[in-house]
Amino acid sequence: MLEISGLTIEFQDVKPPLRAVEDFSLSMEPGEIVGVVGESGSGKTMTALALLGLLKRHAKITAGTMVFKGKDLLSLTPRQWQDVRGKEISMIFQEPMTSLNPVLTIGRQMEESLRLHTNLDGKSRKARALAMMEQVGLSQPEKLYGCYPHQLSGGMRQRVMIGAALVGNPSLMVADEPTTALDVTIQAQILDLLKEMNREYKTAILFISHDLRVIQSICSRVAVMKQGQTVEAGLVADVLSAPKAEYTKKLLAAIPHRGNRLRKKRGR
């Protein structure tokens, strides 16, 4: 369904040009959840933005191809991009505080992609939006429909974002650190929700995170990135149990976990 090969992104406002992503390749099948993991500066967010045609002016794709459902994404005009974004590929972000528009109602934001990409009238749009809100676990959707983002908690906002991203029934959703800003209990709920939506709608998810624990809990395959390069890729189970690259080993060793207490002697 999605075929990225040899993708290279450069920042061209500095000399010499800075390679943010180098020779990145990835293929995704419908309904799959694939993870991209890396630390800050690894280029994982750049890759996500490229996939939505949202790169900043200074960042240029200098090599590679991105083919989505037979369409060459790199040859799309800005107009054609608008038809892909939101309808075919949608995105959710890390910061639920800033990624919803504070002056629009929840209902309005849930309907946005229907408004842009379908001919549904207001009534059926609202019906679809309310049904979707119910689906993402927002109780009393009728009441929330007219609310503004600041009246909601972080977890609820993230649910709204997921609902708004899925309401147009896209085949791919890019999720950039969607649970990083959330508390553990809310994080677990949101991950469960994403898995459930993935089963229900067969939406493929490209899941970007710095946290291997999250990747392990939700993805089937993973690519490990470091400073723009893919150091390792494969099934999550394989990569985590038998890492090949030095960097992956280092990353795995650094994950905080309960099998390894760093505090050896105890004080008192």
Binding site: Q187, A188, Q216, I255, H257
Partner: peptide, 22 residues
Amino acid sequence: IFEEPRHPYTRSLLAASLSYRL
């Protein structure tokens, strides 16, 4: 605390947290 949490809130925190498993 990690092996035998007593308070329900502690239990729910532990249940929700993802722990890396080999």
